[in-house]
Simulated scan of single mutants.
Amino acid sequence: MNGLFDDPLVGDAALRMMDAGDRSRMLPIDLPLKCMIADGRLAMVHLDTADYDSSAHLVVYRSGLLTLLIDFFETLCEMVIPLSRERQPAETAAGLSQRERTI
């Protein structure tokens, strides 16, 4: 879960943003997905998860697939865990502290 802070550049940047008032959050899982949704009308999904530098993308217009991607994104947003300055998730999206999760 603390993988964010394993990379000194990423971890330091996250800490600076938190110090500046950002409410940083992270997912408790790693997803091999890179996707952008614009105004609920369009999505762009990166097709090559092994090479994020490639330019292979799928553009998704209004459809059942776009609705699925939006619902998936909203579900992920419910799973995020806020990060605290102490480099630990403050609590889960369900409101449990680390101690409560351990118990």
Rank of each mutant, 00 (worst) to 15 (best):
residue 1 M to V: 12
residue 92 T to K: 05
residue 99 R to Q: 06
residue 24 S to Y: 00
residue 31 L to N: 12
residue 94 A to F: 04
residue 86 E to W: 03
residue 80 V to K: 04
residue 15 L to M: 06
residue 71 D to T: 12
residue 50 A to D: 14
residue 31 L to F: 09
residue 99 R to S: 06
residue 94 A to E: 13
residue 83 L to T: 03
residue 94 A to G: 11
residue 77 C to M: 10
residue 22 D to R: 09
residue 99 R to Y: 03
residue 34 K to S: 13
residue 30 D to S: 11
residue 1 M to H: 09
residue 76 L to E: 04
residue 23 R to L: 12
residue 10 V to E: 09
residue 34 K to N: 11
residue 65 L to R: 14
residue 22 D to Y: 04
residue 97 S to K: 10
residue 84 S to A: 14
residue 85 R to I: 01
residue 84 S to G: 15
residue 24 S to L: 09
residue 41 R to H: 04
residue 47 L to P: 00
residue 26 M to W: 11
residue 51 D to N: 15
residue 100 E to N: 02
residue 9 L to R: 01
residue 26 M to Q: 12
residue 52 Y to L: 14
residue 29 I to Y: 10
residue 84 S to R: 09
residue 65 L to Y: 13
residue 89 P to S: 11
residue 70 I to D: 09
residue 96 L to F: 03
residue 43 A to K: 06
residue 46 H to A: 14
residue 16 R to E: 02
residue 9 L to D: 01
residue 94 A to Q: 14
residue 56 A to D: 15
residue 12 D to K: 08
residue 58 L to M: 14
residue 71 D to L: 08
residue 35 C to T: 05
residue 14 A to C: 05
residue 49 T to P: 14
residue 80 V to F: 04
residue 61 Y to A: 13
residue 46 H to E: 09
residue 11 G to R: 02
residue 101 R to V: 13
residue 25 R to H: 07
residue 25 R to F: 01
residue 86 E to H: 09
residue 52 Y to M: 04
residue 79 M to L: 13
residue 17 M to I: 03
residue 96 L to P: 00
residue 43 A to P: 04
residue 2 N to S: 10
residue 52 Y to R: 11
residue 44 M to Y: 07
residue 53 D to F: 12
residue 12 D to V: 00
residue 102 T to S: 10
residue 56 A to M: 10
residue 61 Y to I: 08
residue 10 V to P: 00
residue 12 D to R: 05
residue 67 T to E: 13
residue 99 R to N: 06
residue 66 L to Q: 09
residue 91 E to I: 01
residue 98 Q to L: 15
residue 50 A to S: 11
residue 35 C to M: 15
residue 91 E to P: 02
residue 56 A to G: 10
residue 60 V to W: 01
residue 17 M to P: 01
residue 1 M to E: 10
residue 6 D to F: 09
residue 64 G to E: 09
residue 1 M to K: 14
residue 95 G to K: 08
residue 75 T to G: 08
residue 81 I to C: 12
residue 51 D to L: 13
residue 64 G to Q: 13
residue 6 D to P: 04
residue 57 H to Y: 11
residue 73 F to C: 15
residue 60 V to C: 05
residue 31 L to D: 11
residue 37 I to P: 04
residue 40 G to P: 00
residue 12 D to W: 01
residue 63 S to D: 08
residue 32 P to H: 09
residue 38 A to M: 15
residue 32 P to S: 11
residue 16 R to A: 02
residue 15 L to T: 06
residue 97 S to G: 14
residue 78 E to C: 10
residue 21 G to I: 06
residue 92 T to F: 01
residue 77 C to V: 04
residue 88 Q to C: 11
residue 21 G to W: 01
residue 22 D to W: 04
residue 65 L to D: 14
residue 44 M to D: 07
residue 37 I to Y: 08
residue 94 A to R: 14
residue 62 R to G: 02
residue 43 A to H: 07
residue 100 E to D: 10
residue 85 R to E: 08
residue 20 A to F: 01
residue 71 D to K: 14
residue 93 A to S: 14
residue 17 M to W: 00
residue 78 E to D: 12
residue 20 A to K: 00
residue 99 R to A: 15
residue 19 D to Y: 00
residue 58 L to S: 12
residue 90 A to I: 04
residue 7 D to T: 05
residue 36 M to E: 05
residue 62 R to V: 08
residue 82 P to S: 13
residue 60 V to L: 11
residue 1 M to N: 12
residue 97 S to M: 03
residue 84 S to P: 01
residue 83 L to P: 03
residue 36 M to Y: 09
residue 100 E to T: 02
residue 91 E to V: 01
residue 16 R to M: 01
residue 85 R to Y: 06
residue 6 D to C: 15
residue 66 L to H: 12
residue 87 R to Y: 07
residue 69 L to T: 06
